[in-house]
Structures are given as C-alpha cells and as structure tokens.
Design a protein around this nucleic acid. Structure first.
Lengths: 181, 181
DNA sequence: GTCTATACTAAGATAGAC
DNA sequence: GTCTATCTTAGTATAGAC
C-alpha cells in the first residue's frame, strides 16, 4: 500500500505498448524485457510467467475501468457523452489498457476475453439509468464498440475514414440527443 | 479456372476455423494441418509458409467482400438494412472470413490490417449514395463496426448483452429510418 | 532484486521418400 | 500430391551467481 513496486509498472507499460503498437505476436517475454530495459531474468522475477504478465495486464484494465465508472457518474457533460467521447480516445491510460487486453483476447486469452465482456457489462449497467430505454442503450453501447474497435484497428498509420474531431463531436451530440432525456 | 484445387480450400477452412474458435495463438501450422486432416508436409505443399497461408486468407476475404458488395447493391430490403443485418451475422462465409482476418490483424499481421481497412472503405463507398449525409454514414459504419466487433469477441460461450433477434431488428429499423431517405 | 547462462519446448520450414 | 523425418529458431522458463 505504502509505495507501489515501480519496476512492475514499467514492465507492464512495456508489455502494453508492444501489444498496442505491434500486436500480440510481437509481445514476447524477450521483447518486453528489452523494451522495459531489464533482462529476461529481471522480468521473470516480477512476473513468473507470461500468463502472470497477461493476468496483471487484465487487472490493470479492471482497475482503470473501476476508476472510469466513478468518473462517468460525475461527468459534467453527462454520462453518455463522456462515455462516447472517451471510447474514441487512444491516448489515455484506460484506452491503452483496453487495446492491449483486446489484443490478448483476440489472440486467444480466455481471461482477457472475459475481462472485455465484464467491463462492457459494467459500462452498460452504469449507463442504463442515463438512457431512455433498452434500445437507446443498445445503440450507445454498439456505437462505443465501433469507436473502440476502430481505435484498436487504427494503430499508427491510421488516417482512416472514422470520424474524429468536430465530425465526431457532432455525431456524439446527435446520438446523445436521441438516446437520453 | 476449370476446377478449383480442393485441398487448398479445406486447409484454408481449417485455418479460418481455428482462428475464429481459438484465436491466432492456437492457429499454428501444426494445428491447421491436423484439423485439415493432412500432414505438415502436405500443408506446406499447398502453402509454402505461414505468411502464404495468411495471405490466402486475406484474399478469400477480399473476394467474399467483392461478392457482398454486389449483393448489397441489389438487396431488396435496402442496402443499409442489408449491411447492418449481415454485420451482426456470425455463421456465413463472409463473417467467418472477417473474424479470421480480424484476429490476424490484431495479432500483428500488417496485410490483414490493411485488408480490414480496405473493406471498410469499400463498404463505406457503397453505402454513401444510400445515406442522408456524412453524419448518417458515419453512424451506420460505426454501428456495423460495433456489431462486427461483438461477433469477434463473442465466440462460443457468448450469451452477452449484445442485441440479437427481434431487439436487433428493431434497432436496425430505427437506425435505417434515421439515416436514409 | 536483478543478472547470466542454459534447459526445454514448440513453431516454422526443409529434404527427400513414396 | 502427400507423407515422414529432421533441422533451426524463437519463446518460455529454471538455476544459480552476484
């Protein structure tokens, strides 16, 4: 509690970064150790196996989502607007963790897939009181899934046709108008 | 042209199936050969490398999308309805190929990622004439991304909260009403 | 608490028999 | 055209020095 072990976080950051930038295939123990600036032995002191590393990544996501759910409830702009806006982001801690865990999930990690499903349900429960009806909630969730999916597919060289900036703001505004009171 | 090589397709089916059901990590040459009922040597006669196998999978997707774009144009129910309905499907050839290539993309294959982006643009271009404006088109595309994303995350043990059946039909109907003439 | 050295395993690929 | 056998490399993990 007093002071979190720092090296663990650095290693986890490295794992997250490689997963995001290069995909699960490239996220080997070796690559993670190199990126984190520690030796393979050093890595394995902190995380005894790859599974342990993945599990820690999932835990990080769950923690960040718990924080986000609190944010969401108190968001000045409204919960749904906040949710959709942040679903499109790529550069905060939560989204990086989300992308990393999504990559693990698609590569075959069951715990990662469970986590993705769990956090989706948590967000859905949190937004239910703020949306008109079940249909409106479905629309909001699917839209967020779409935005999130495009974040994971984007990567560096994106320049895709997915709305961003002002177009995205307008879209969110419209959808919020349709789904909330 | 006269008769397509049958064994190739069987191997490709096996690859697709393992990618969909177990993820990219499990889709090894060995596993594909076993599933296809051929030996490793036999597999490598048809596909000289894993890269060749992945490339063939991408080609299959591009081919199926080309067919789908033709279907979409002539769909009785309307292009947008057709598009959204099929984006939620999981059990036709196109969707299986889409899920397989999405898994490859997330695991780190650049060609797979390019393919996903390409087909998204193709669909977007095809739907543009059928939607009200840029914002409506964005909404339709993101909704389809969300539906597609949930297909890839679902897998066998789904039972998730993603709309299906009648709820999905209603949602699609509403969105089509909002985005088309 | 972090490193080097090394063992073990699995994956991708080749050679050549049939 | 498909198989068996084998090689190489890369990835995970262990042991033990520092």
């Amino acid at each position: 509690m007093s002071r979190p072990p720092r090296a663990r976080e650095i290693v986890l950051d490295a794992f997250e970064q490689i997963l995001s930038n290069e995909g699960a295939r490239a996220a080997t123990m070796d690559a993670v150790a190199r990126q984190a600036g520690v030796s393979k032995g050093g890595l394995l002191y902190h995380f005894a196996s790859k599974e342990a590393l993945e599990s820690a990544m999932v835990d990080r996501l769950l923690k960040l989502v718990a924080d986000d759910l609190a944010e969401l409830e108190s968001a000045e702009e409204g919960s749904v607007t906040y949710f959709l806006r942040t679903s499109a982001a790529e550069d905060d801690n939560l989204d990086r963790a989300m992308i990393a865990v999504a990559r693990l999930a698609q590569s075959g990690s069951e715990p990662a897939r469970d986590a993705i499903r769990t956090v989706r349900l948590q967000w859905e429960d949190a937004l239910r009181p703020h949306t008109r009806d079940a249909l409106a909630l479905d629309l909001v969730m699917l839209l967020a899934d779409g935005l999130s999916f495009n974040s994971t597919m984007g990567g560096d060289a994106q320049l895709s046709s997915v709305p961003h900036g002002e177009a995205l703001d307008t879209l969110i505004e419209r959808v919020v108008g349709l789904t909330t009171w």
